[in-house]
Every structure is written in structure tokens, then in C-alpha cells.
Design a protein around this nucleic acid. Structure first.
Lengths: 175, 175
DNA sequence: CGTGCGACCTAACGCCGTTATGTTACCTGA
DNA sequence: TCAGGTAACATAACGGCGTTAGGTCGCACG
């Protein structure tokens, strides 16, 4: 808090007139990052094909994590009292998960997936887990330090992951 | 450190005679957890089929994370100076990733995967990312607090993830 | 013109990791 | 046998942290 205060030209106590405590401040900053991620995800030329949109979303997710490692770590890897239900909006334009869900639903309704897949929620979570795990590993792994782990280029790995996922998911894989 | 010392019946400074600083102590504990994870992963009836082994490994990974959330968080989600290359062994029996890698290699050599897949390392990382992301999401998500995210049962999600992965990977999916 | 209030400060509290400086019990070699 | 070294602890204190109590100042408003 003192260091933040120094950087913005105030004393630490001044911050407490605007935020209840450190967590409240961090949550506010974190919420900002979530909005940035949501924007990064749905910021794409409005592709007609939901499958292409899913691909691009995954790509953007990994790209965001690698381009803004501090923010990503901050959003998902730092233990912090979770913000109340009120602060995270449900608008797909801002909430990345909701946006993912609508795209999965669209693909489901178009009958693009194999018939055994019917639950959009669980499919969305499988897809999210894939890219999230990839991002997390690349952000937290002691990469260069340990020769037994040769981390492949994240975007290449992501592309391969999408290929595997989609071949497993799609009724008629066209690649 | 003071609280740890209290719990073990010593003063905080006594700890500094056995560990250089707090990080050294935490790294030692963390290493312990990594060994436990490695053991949990390769602790399976020696299945003849590498695909079944991969499935079971993934299942065990998620199960470990959910059964020992503190340890898992501690291993992967807590920022901490990374331990030197010397402390993590390369023996597949202890190192979970190495064990994953050998199983992927075996499946590759048996020609179980589609021909476009040749790099064991990148395949292992895709598989790891999947279960790791799933575990991470379930350990860090504000789950019940946010109605817009209906987290499905992790083991069910994991099974569906394996099905999708394997259908995308295998030359002859038999399910 | 007085009052209230928001924005900010100084000083201090209690907690934390860490260190300087003992103290004690035991082992070891002449 | 005993002097000296050493391992295993302790006490007291340091600096830094988040946080709070209390005070100052300027401005809006009846």
C-alpha cells in the first residue's frame, strides 16, 4: 500500500478513503482485468462459423495470458477473498465465460457436435479447462530451469489442442 | 514462521538453523507434495494398455488436486522462488511429467495415435494442460458464489474431456 | 459566516520474516 | 579429565507491512 501510494503521489492512508482495505483495491483492479480479458475474447471480426469463433476465442485466451502474465496471474493464481456475486456481470460482452457458453450453445443447436454431446455447460468447461491449463502451465512452470520439461511453443500447443478437441467433438471433422 | 514454530513447540528462530529462510522451508514442503503427486499418478495396477494408463493418470491427477487442495494450490498456484534444477528428480517413478511422457511415447510407438501426431512432448503437454486446467478451475473458481458459472462435477467433466481427447487422438477409437 | 464533510496527512499499533547475540548441552582430542 | 568447539536452541530487536486513530485543511452550502 505504501509503495502504491508513493507511485501515485499520495500517502498510504489516502487509499483507505477510497477502498475499504487492500483486498477491496485488488478486487477492483482484478475486475478491470476481467473486463479486459472479456473484451479480448469477443474482440474478433464477427465470424459466421461458431467453430471458428471457438478456435479464435481459445487462441485469444492463451494470447492474453502470455501477453499480460501479471494480470492473468493476478486474476486466477493469487489467493484473495473472492468478490461478491454482484461485481461480475453476466453480459457476454464482458463476461468471457458467458460468451464461450453462447458459442457452444450455438454449435450445439446447429448440430455440429456428435450426438452424445448435449450439455453446453460441461463442454464449455472442458474447452475452458484446456486453454486455462495451458496458459497456467506456461505462466507458472519453472520452464527453462528444468531440462526434463521442454515446454513447446504455447500457440503451437494450443493449435494442436484445438485440433484434437474438435476432431473429438465434431460430427464431421473437415481437416 | 512464528506460527509454525508454535505448532512444533519451538521458537521461530530455531527453524533458521535447519532452513535458510521461509522459501527454503516452503520449497522443501512443496517438494514433498510433488513426490506425493508423482506417487499418486503412477500408483496404479500396472495396466497393460497405455491408453488406460493415460486415462487413469488423468483421473488420478484431478482426484489428487481435489483431495489435497491445499497441497495442489501450494505446488502450482503460490508464487515462490522456483527451486533449482537439482531438487526435482527425473525418475518417472517420482516425476509425474516424466511418467506421463513415457506413457505417451509408448502409445506413439504402438501406433495407437493418428499419424499426424508424432511429438510425444507436445502431446503430453496438451494432456497435462487439460487436467491441470480442470483442477485449477475447480480449486480457484468462486464456484457457488457466482450463479452464472454452474461448475459441473469435476470427475464427470474429466471423463468427458478424456473421451473427447482420445477420440481426437486415437487412430481407431473403440467407444 | 459558520458548519459539515470529503480528502488528505502524521503517528502509531500489531504482526511478519529475519538477524545479532547469547546460552546450553554434548562431543572430541590432548 | 577437561578445554574447546559445535549443534541446537533461546531472547531481543530491526525494518517493513497493512491498518487505524486522530488531526488539518479547503470547499460547498444554508
Amino acid at each position: 500500500m505504501r509503495r502504491i501510494a508513493d507511485q501515485i503521489g499520495y500517502t498510504a492512508t489516502a487509499i483507505y478513503h477510497h477502498f475499504h482495505d487492500k483486498d477491496a483495491l485488488l478486487n477492483e483492479l482484478c475486475l478491470n482485468d476481467f473486463r479486459a480479458l472479456g473484451e479480448a475474447l469477443h474482440q474478433m471480426e464477427r465470424l459466421p462459423d461458431p467453430i471458428s469463433r471457438l478456435r479464435l476465442m481459445g487462441h485469444n485466451y492463451v494470447k492474453f495470458a502470455l501477453a499480460h502474465p501479471q494480470q492473468f496471474r493476478f486474476m486466477f493464481l493469487v489467493e484473495r477473498p473472492i468478490p461478491g456475486p454482484d461485481v461480475i456481470t453476466i453480459d457476454p460482452a464482458e463476461n468471457g465465460y458467458a460468451f464461450l457458453l453462447t458459442n457452444v450453445r450455438e454449435a450445439l443447436e446447429l448440430g455440429l457436435f456428435r450426438p452424445e454431446f448435449t450439455d453446453a455447460e460441461i463442454l464449455a468447461q472442458v474447452l475452458w479447462a484446456g486453454v486455462h491449463g495451458l496458459a497456467t502451465i506456461h505462466l507458472t512452470s519453472p520452464a527453462k530451469e528444468h531440462p526434463w520439461l521442454e515446454l513447446r511453443h504455447p500457440e503451437t500447443t494450443a493449435r494442436m489442442m484445438f485440433d484434437i478437441f474438435l476432431r473429438g467433438l465434431l460430427r464431421h471433422p473437415n481437416f
